[in-house]
Write a protein that binds this DNA or RNA. Sequence first.
DNA 1: CTGAAAGCGCTTACAG
DNA 2: CTGAAAGCGCTTACAG
Lengths: 326, 326
Amino acid sequence: MSIQKIARLAGVSVATVSRVLNNSDTVKEKNREKVLQAIKASNYQPNLLARQLRTARSSMVLVLVSDITNPFCAELVKGIEEQAEQQGYRILLCNSGSDIRRSRSSLQLLSGKIVDGVITMDAFTTLPELTQLIGDTPWVQCAEYADAGDISCVGINDVDASRQLVRHLVESGRQRIALINHDLSYKYAQLRQQGYQQELRSRQLEWQAITYASALSFSAGKQAMETLLQQETRPDAVFAISDTLAAGAMSAIRQAGLRVPQDIAVAGFDGTELAEMVSPPLTTIAQPSRDIGRKAFSLLQQKMDNPHAPTERVMMDWRLIVRAST
Amino acid sequence: MSIQKIARLAGVSVATVSRVLNNSDTVKEKNREKVLQAIKASNYQPNLLARQLRTARSSMVLVLVSDITNPFCAELVKGIEEQAEQQGYRILLCNSGSDIRRSRSSLQLLSGKIVDGVITMDAFTTLPELTQLIGDTPWVQCAEYADAGDISCVGINDVDASRQLVRHLVESGRQRIALINHDLSYKYAQLRQQGYQQELRSRQLEWQAITYASALSFSAGKQAMETLLQQETRPDAVFAISDTLAAGAMSAIRQAGLRVPQDIAVAGFDGTELAEMVSPPLTTIAQPSRDIGRKAFSLLQQKMDNPHAPTERVMMDWRLIVRAST
DNA sequence: CTGAAAGCGCTTACAG
DNA sequence: CTGAAAGCGCTTACAG
């Protein structure tokens, strides 16, 4: 079913059909109706491929998400979606699993002209490769940094946020604060660790312990906490770099027969709903995830509308939420 | 950058370039090299739109997910993805939010020939409309029923699973078992409710209470539980139709100063990781979510490979997991 | 083994 | 207001 058939059915030229389809110009009412009727009668659906090939734009953007299972990512996506929808764009989600091979495959949608731009959340260590793959098509990095190259990004000040969280733990009397971190190829992981260390140093606290969870998951958090509990001195507080990890840590603590927060205080990061779901509810850093997502799309749109739009690095606000876990 | 330019650069025809690109036939080694070199030199990327338009296939499928935030959905998607990847397909995720308007918009990817098939998880009440939108392109309904029309689907036997869960509650001595359900436009919600009622009846338990959560979320579950707690007689057990709702219910119970499971037992459904994350951990029905996803893709692939493939309704295995919450 | 040519289904100046 | 025609970037019989 093509525009040709419709044209034949309606007794007009394909140009006229196309004009009706794009409700453009001035088509004589009589003709418009004939076309509309033919369309309805044949249940015609325009071929988007052909249209996009011709116009060289798709009004679709690719969102390369590292892990949809991660509630923080899911929130970011919702923000991106909201903004995109409002601006008449459609979003294609691809789950990269932080795997460069899969990213590469997904990015063919970009180089293949199926989407007009891309929002990524990949580790900043993969940026060189991504940069090469993406070339100079519109691109925004979301909730992870890009400190070189011509890439716009949105995030929060992770060092400050971490410091404030650690400060809170210190001020509530904790002496041995451990960190459960994740893959340091993420810049945000590095920065949160920096914040943690800076704050300890400035408070003259010598005790320090860092474990690296193998994934950003509950079970990895649990395992990381078990490791911490096996060490000679036991921490009296744990700062986990995400709420999911913190939930895992709490579970490990409970299984070891210890209490939260009496024996060990636990704090998370992100401010997802999960932090309220566990008990005791988690102290955490609330990130404005929806807004980060929205902003990421806005930056992308600027680039799509104008290839020479300036590259921006946006820092959003965050805040500490104190709950019963600390 | 087009195939034409490469042809010119390499001093061959576009046909030859195309052949190299599709590593087909037998291109003289000398020419292949010239082409490969030209491609590398110019960093050429094939235009997928043009290719898909020409070949009328994309090796991409659309997954219309009702809510990526839902951990059960996320698991399904991972299963679909695994299978798709293995078969050389790419997946496009669209978040319908159970909104028919958004589904409609996403389905243009189908009618517009951008994808070869679609997997949905929409409420069965929307099927008539979806059927009309989708026409006769390959389509599989995942984790929700389709009892009419020519739609393949994969799921579990919800009635049996519910009955077994309720049986477990009864057998552990519970007398007043409440149900926290969700939107009855989902067939699975209807069936689980049926199972609940059937089992109560067969056990001659008269007491019954059903609340409907406004969403499949923690806070909606909490609210639903609060409603239940306000009624004259208090239940001594609650069966929530999803783990997320169950988590909300537990939170409400705790806030009311009651204990789980001593005062009220709580059971969930789905068997997501969340069920292990809360404390006490949840008794739940484990659905083989990954396998459901994989199966959904396989069914879709059958339809894509052969338009006359038979329509199937697949029922997967499930099992009851008893934990400390009951 | 290779190239000229048709065609996938659209849109858009251009001429009338 | 409308139509004929070119062209987006590919692939694929067809002929050689």
